[in-house]
Amino acid sequence: MSNYQLTEAIERYLSGEMSGDERAHFEQMRKDNADIDNKIAEHLHFTGLLKQYRERIELENKLNAIHNEMDIHSLVEEMTIHPSWVVQMWRNHHSKISVAASVAIFAVLTVMLSTGFFKKQPDVQLLSREMEKIKRSNAALTHATSALATEIHKKSLGPGNYSGSGFALSSNGYIVTNNHIINGNSSKSPDSIYVQDALGNAYKAKLVYSEPKYDIAILKITDDSFEELPALPYNFKKGKSDLGEDVFTLGYSEGDAPVMDKGYLSSENGRKGDSTGYRISIPVNPGNSGSPLINSKGNVVGIISGRQTQVEGASYAIKTGYLYKAIQNVPLDSLSGKLSLSNKNTLAGLSRVQQIKKMKNYVFMVKVY
Rank of each mutant, 00 (worst) to 15 (best):
M1C: 02
Y4L: 05
T7R: 05
E8T: 05
I10P: 06
E11G: 03
R12V: 00
R12C: 00
L14G: 01
S15W: 12
S19I: 05
G20C: 11
A24V: 14
E27W: 14
Q28F: 14
Q28W: 14
M29H: 10
R30I: 13
D32S: 09
D35E: 11
I36W: 12
D37C: 03
K39C: 03
I40G: 07
L44K: 10
L50Q: 11
K51E: 13
Q52L: 12
Y53W: 09
R54N: 10
R54M: 11
E58G: 00
N61G: 03
N64K: 07
A65N: 04
A65P: 02
I66S: 01
I66H: 05
M70Q: 04
D71K: 09
E78M: 13
M79P: 02
P83F: 14
W85S: 08
V86I: 15
Q88R: 15
N92A: 14
H93C: 03
H94R: 08
K96N: 08
S98I: 08
S98F: 10
S98G: 05
V99P: 00
I105V: 08
F106C: 01
V108C: 05
S114A: 15
T115M: 06
G116V: 07
F117P: 01
K119D: 07
K120E: 15
L127H: 09
E132P: 06
E132S: 13
K133W: 01
K135M: 12
R136G: 00
L141Y: 15
H143N: 07
H143Q: 10
T145R: 15
A147I: 12
A147C: 10
T150S: 13
K155F: 00
K155T: 01
S165E: 06
S165M: 08
F167G: 00
L169R: 08
V176Q: 04
T177N: 04
N179P: 05
N185P: 02
S186I: 15
S186E: 15
Q196N: 03
N201M: 11
N201F: 14
V208H: 06
Y209I: 08
E211W: 13
P212G: 05
D215E: 15
D215C: 10
A217L: 03
L219D: 06
I221D: 10
F226D: 11
E227S: 07
E228A: 03
E228Y: 05
E228H: 02
P233Q: 04
Y234V: 01
F236H: 05
F236C: 02
K237N: 12
K240V: 04
D242R: 08
D242A: 09
T249C: 01
L250M: 04
Y252R: 05
G255Q: 04
A257N: 04
M260H: 00
Y264K: 03
S267M: 04
E268I: 07
G270M: 10
K272M: 09
G273W: 14
T276K: 12
G277E: 15
Y278N: 06
Y278S: 05
I282Q: 01
P283G: 06
P286W: 00
I303N: 04
I304N: 06
S305M: 12
G306S: 15
R307S: 15
Q310R: 14
V311Q: 11
G313Q: 10
S315E: 15
S315K: 11
S315I: 14
Y322W: 11
L323N: 00
L323C: 01
I327V: 12
V330F: 06
P331K: 13
L335R: 11
K338T: 14
L339C: 06
L347M: 02
L347Q: 02
L350A: 07
V363Q: 01
V363D: 03
V366W: 08
V368L: 00
